[in-house]
Simulated scan of single mutants.
Amino acid sequence: MTTAPEVEVLIPTRNRPTELATTLAGLAAQDFPDFAVTVSDQSDAVAVGDQSGAVAVGDQSDATPGYATPASTGMIRVLRHHGHEVRAGTHLPPRGIAEHRDHLLRTARGRFVLFLDDDVWLEPDTIARMYRAITEWRCGFVGCAVQGLSYLDDHRPAELAPFETWPGAPEPEYVRPGTPEWRRWTLHNAANPTHLAEQLGPRDGDLVGYKVAWVGGCVLYDREKLMATGGFGFWRQLPRAHSGEDVLAQVRLMARYGGAGILPSGAIHLESPTTLRDRDVEAYDVVPPDFWNRAPAGH
């Protein structure tokens, strides 16, 4: 990458070739000009060649990377034709999703990094709106909670009760298990983000920031601020099989710099089965107690 992009989209992926192609298609249609894409694959090994023409990054192996399928290859060509640099490679052996995110963050150069799950399609203005929000508010992160549109008729008013907008830029706040703020996690279940946006009504381009416990699936971070609070370096304190690693990174960022969800979201969850086989261990349940009392000065 010769010139650092303003936004770098980081996609950890595993065994999701169809979903990854859909995710890349959403990126290829974005109306934000200055972003690059890095795909890091941990798919199971099935001998097939890489057809992508992407710039290789990371540890190569005989795994079948999702980005090597014809559909993903086509989207990579579109992205590159539009001037977006694409890097793709494998990162093996798997050491858990937190380590995978740590690897991606360490290779990133963008001023902002968008961690995007490999089963999320973005509406064309999503990155532009997220960029506008984080540069105006100067907080640690902004997130577009993923929406499960199969739940459009499943209204859950009780789960929307913790909703509260930020009156201005997000401020630092202490969010931990057992606090009232933690109850906001229900805001992002099913199609709740869609229903929240509908309740707010048309906003004529205004950004609506709201208070969160955390956001999964589509989160734009200020890279320097994320690294200043330790990034995902805590992966060494976790068992290999875990989930909830993004929660830990975000609560540290919120404590020092603040963070927010934004509406409308623009991030659509494809609702594919998870490829994290063992989700019994939540990262925030197993980190040492002092994790909640400190944030490293550097990464």
Rank of each mutant, 00 (worst) to 15 (best):
222 D>W: 07
79 L>A: 07
86 V>Y: 08
22 T>A: 15
240 R>G: 15
172 P>H: 15
133 A>V: 08
265 S>F: 06
275 T>G: 10
155 H>L: 07
244 G>S: 08
164 E>N: 14
165 T>I: 15
218 C>S: 02
19 E>C: 05
143 G>Q: 01
270 L>N: 10
55 V>S: 11
181 E>W: 13
75 M>Y: 00
195 H>V: 00
120 V>A: 02
17 P>S: 12
80 R>F: 07
214 W>V: 12
234 F>P: 08
62 D>E: 12
235 W>N: 03
5 P>S: 00
146 V>L: 15
138 R>S: 14
208 V>P: 09
185 W>S: 11
91 H>N: 02
115 F>P: 02
132 R>W: 00
66 G>I: 00
211 K>L: 02
15 N>H: 06
64 T>A: 10
265 S>P: 03
261 G>N: 10
49 G>Q: 13
279 R>S: 11
276 L>A: 13
18 T>G: 14
98 A>M: 03
59 D>Q: 10
244 G>E: 00
121 W>F: 08
138 R>N: 15
265 S>I: 03
133 A>K: 12
74 G>V: 10
210 Y>D: 07
150 S>D: 11
173 E>A: 14
285 D>Y: 12
147 Q>N: 12
86 V>I: 06
159 E>P: 01
110 G>A: 07
69 T>V: 12
31 D>H: 14
29 A>T: 02
122 L>G: 05
172 P>Y: 14
114 L>H: 04
111 R>L: 09
132 R>N: 13
137 W>L: 04
250 Q>L: 11
274 T>M: 13
239 P>F: 01
243 S>R: 05
41 D>N: 07
44 D>Y: 11
163 F>G: 11
251 V>W: 02
83 G>E: 04
10 L>C: 07
285 D>S: 12
104 L>K: 02
83 G>M: 09
200 L>P: 00
213 A>N: 12
186 T>K: 04
200 L>E: 02
194 T>V: 07
12 P>V: 06
249 A>G: 01
61 S>Y: 06
153 D>P: 08
13 T>K: 13
272 S>P: 03
153 D>N: 09
65 P>N: 07
198 E>S: 12
113 V>G: 03
49 G>R: 09
203 R>M: 13
217 G>N: 08
22 T>I: 06
67 Y>I: 00
291 F>Q: 05
104 L>C: 01
54 A>V: 02
25 A>Y: 08
196 L>W: 04
225 K>H: 03
95 R>Y: 11
132 R>V: 11
111 R>Y: 13
288 P>T: 04
19 E>V: 11
134 I>K: 09
274 T>C: 09
207 L>W: 00
42 Q>P: 05
152 L>Q: 15
107 T>N: 10
178 G>T: 03
191 A>M: 09
35 F>L: 09
228 A>L: 02
224 E>F: 11
26 G>L: 05
175 V>K: 05
